[in-house]
Amino acid sequence: MSLFRNPSDQPLWKDEFSVFTADERYVTRRQFTKFLSLASLGMFAGNLWILAKTFFVKTPEFPSTVVAELGEIPVGGVKLFTYPAPQDHCILVRTGDDKYVAYSQKCTHLSCAVYYSAQQGRLECPCHQGYFSIKDGSVLQGPPPRPLPRIVLERDAGKLVAKGVKVGEHG
């Protein structure tokens, strides 16, 4: 069985590169179903690729980095820092006397930088009005499809230390 159309006695090149435009653009039903099958194979391969990624991706190791001194920022105040790499911008917010939270500053929609709105008590993306909960980084409104990655913070001798990044988890 041939994958190519060859309905006439003409050589294949004359069939495929016909002087008649209509002939050249003609697609048979069998060709079209083969194309659909190939597209389906492509989708399946994509799913297999994602599956392979879940099996072979190892958990990244995050460094411990001091991001702020306790009491360095006022209640409702923010501090910007980078973690774990210098190009990964994050935002630290002091939400209470003894409460600190930190998230990646990159909106999960189109990567605009989010900022903290103290009045509304939420993180806001100015590009497309995507809002995130300050409590757990979950999406409150707008187009972002996922929560903000959360920076794991620990206290060590009066300092706030970033210990890791939790992606796609609430709380």
Binding site: K53, T54, R146, V167, G168
Partner: peptide
């Protein structure tokens, strides 16, 4: 997958197959 829910990959791959 990007949201960190890796458990969906296997059933999705089977269904896609």
């Amino acid at each position: 997958f990007l949201a960190g829910h890796h458990g969906v990959a296997l059933p999705a791959a089977i269904f896609s197959g």
